[in-house]
Design a protein around this nucleic acid. Structure first.
Lengths: 224, 224
DNA sequence: ACAAAAGTGTTGACTTTACACCCATGG
DNA sequence: CCATGGGTGTAAAGTCAACACTTTTGT
């Protein structure tokens, strides 16, 4: 079908992913630098126009791969953004996703057909981004904070397993909040997200920490 | 800008609202019956194509008004749906909203330019709907269940106030779960959603119940 | 034997659950 | 004065917060 009605002619869909990582207690988001108009030279979240032959999630994955080389990250849809003027070119609605990954395990493509740079940027040092991506990022950070509670979303950050003290640092970085070591351990284990691997992480000169892995499937919780 | 690239030509956005009500302990959703192709004669959720001059939320409101006559309902975005073949006509991505309203307070438009009927249907008696609307509805019901916890979304169902026993029946209907009267009262009051109006609801032959109102603003809660 | 970080247990405060009685109203 | 449903209090169980000591390792 050819769309003729001016009221809804020339619309498109953006699929955008706010991909996070945590490096030494600092939460960072993956940004790319555009090398085309609009927003030539601006930093933006990874994303682009949805193709007709792919689902929203497939589109988000394709864009992530094309522009950053990253594959194999679980992503979760968080919200659609539809301000009339969010794109200067034409009417675009953006569907935003979040994901989290260990930046050290990926080789980040620095340049692609549409990008001239890519980098992990601490979330409190993000510059003014193109489109409405600052708004999307703010929302994405909030969703990330909600999502790590009682979920295994951090599995993709620690595919090989994680010690509880390391995990605590990650929670503290994301939530900007400190926890008591003993109570944190009890709480996180009570969520039944983790399973014991019976292996130990060795550090320099202190007691080795037990390594846990996030389970594939986690339990639902009652809300009331 | 004129879109020429076949990869993302002729795309559109649906804005869809699953509008709920609760009548005598039964949760119902507003459905409309189409009088055009595609899905001529099928029941669907309220919604339609987003215009270029309106935001997603504005589009959802306009469609609700056009097709059912309903205005002045708070709605909340829940998810975007983007299966490639979700519309048989062209590539459409749907952005779904939920809302809840007292069906007795609205005059439901039974017919409009694009609809030949409209009705409130119990959510467990919903027929096969057009498009992917059964999938959207299932998701919407789950979101409604999550949303009523610790939120004032039910304010629009009870704009004039509500007694705690009535509210309990509503929660029980939506969550399909029974609560102890005394504990329900304590829990709901502890959420600080309600304020006392110092008025009483009279029934036939029993103690009048105190009427509360949902507050406009509610408190945030800590997650961990 | 020391430093550094991991691991564990207990007590008191608080929250939640289960449950029974009294109250206001209309008939 | 009875039937109906509204409103309240309390004790026991369970959960959470605060906190200090012991363990393992490398040097």
């Amino acid at each position: 079908m050819e769309v003729k009605n001016k009221l809804y002619q020339n619309q498109g869909i953006h699929v955008i992913t706010a991909l996070f990582t945590v490096e030494q207690g600092v939460v960072k988001v993956l940004l790319i630098k555009r090398k085309n108009e609009p927003f030539f030279g601006s930093w933006v979240l990874t994303g682009g126009a949805l193709y007709n032959n792919e689902s929203l999630e497939e589109g988000a994955y394709r864009e992530l791969k094309e522009k950053t080389g990253i594959t194999n990250v679980p992503i979760k849809q968080v919200k659609a953004f539809g301000r009339v003027d969010r794109s200067p070119v034409m009417r675009m609605v953006a569907v935003a996703y979040i994901g989290i990954i260990d930046s050290k395990r990926v080789r980040l493509l620095k340049e692609s057909r549409n990008t001239q740079d890519a980098d992990w940027v601490p979330i409190d040092q993000v510059p003014k981004l193109g489109y409405d991506h600052n708004e999307i990022l703010d929302y994405a950070v909030e969703e990330l904070r909600k999502e790590i509670i009682h979920s295994n979303i951090l599995k993709s950050l620690f595919p090989d397993g994680i010690t509880i003290p390391e995990l605590q640092k990650t929670y503290e970085a994301i939530l900007k909040k400190k926890f008591d070591r003993r109570n944190f351990r009890k709480k996180i284990l009570s969520w039944n997200l983790l399973e014991d691997t019976n292996t130990y992480q060795k550090f320099e000169g202190n007691k080795p920490a037990k390594i846990y892995k996030f389970k594939e499937k986690i339990e639902e919780i009652d809300m009331i």
